[in-house]
Amino acid sequence: MSVLYLFGSAAPPVHHIARPIADAQARGWDVCLGLTPTAAGWLSGQQTDLERLTDHPVRSTYKQPGAPDAWPKADVIAFAPATFNSVNCWALGVTANFVVGVVAEAIGKDIPLVAMPCVNAAYARHRALDRSIGELREMGVTVLYGEGGFVPNQPGQGRPDAYPWELLLDQADRLRA
């Protein structure tokens, strides 16, 4: 069975993360869930259920040096929802949190990566976002943004329940070795 690391940051669709986990499992993935610290706080009440669903610990912090890894090695890493902050930190190599650190290192390890941002139209107008997406794409990351991926909505008009998780999982399936 192939291993998918599913990483999420603190955007409203993360509240629905159990759905793409179950969908990925139905596609034959062994899913390990990683969250940014804020997303982990948002989902703290669901952590036990998510661990039961994945049969792995939910991680949001780095392990201690020398400690064994609680997860099997990833075949593909999918990062969604990826916030404005996470995308920009990743592109710049700012690895202050576990999730961004893993995806930054995965580029150098040649682990296939797919990301799908979740930003509103106000953030999308900030030039840093386009630069960061361009940087990630130049490093080989598949970024599902714009036509064929996530399309920003006006601030306050998002529909987290309509986030296109299936696009992320379809791409992860294509990246599977």
Rank of each mutant, 00 (worst) to 15 (best):
V58I: 05
P81C: 03
E138R: 15
L43V: 01
N97C: 07
M139N: 14
W29E: 04
G34D: 04
D170K: 03
V58Y: 04
L144Y: 05
N88K: 08
Q46R: 05
A104C: 09
I77Q: 11
A80Q: 03
N88A: 08
L129K: 10
A70N: 07
I133G: 00
L92R: 13
N153T: 15
A121C: 10
R131Y: 08
Y5M: 04
S9W: 08
L167A: 10
V76Y: 08
D130I: 11
S86L: 12
D130S: 14
F98L: 04
D161K: 06
R27T: 02
V103G: 03
L144P: 02
A104D: 14
G28T: 11
R19A: 14
R131Q: 13
T48S: 15
P164A: 02
A70W: 09
A11Q: 15
A115L: 13
P37L: 06
N97L: 01
T38H: 07
V14S: 09
W71G: 13
V114F: 10
F150M: 02
M139R: 15
T61E: 14
P81E: 04
R174W: 06
S132T: 05
R19N: 05
S44V: 12
I17M: 04
D49M: 08
T142F: 06
R27P: 00
I77A: 08
Q154E: 15
Y145D: 01
T142D: 12
Q154F: 14
A24R: 01
R19L: 12
Y62H: 06
A128C: 08
M139Q: 15
G134N: 10
K109Q: 15
Y5K: 01
A11V: 09
S60N: 09
N97H: 07
A70F: 10
D30G: 00
T48I: 07
A78Q: 02
E147M: 07
F98I: 00
F7G: 11
G101C: 04
M139E: 11
Y163C: 00
I77F: 11
A67L: 09
V99T: 08
W90I: 07
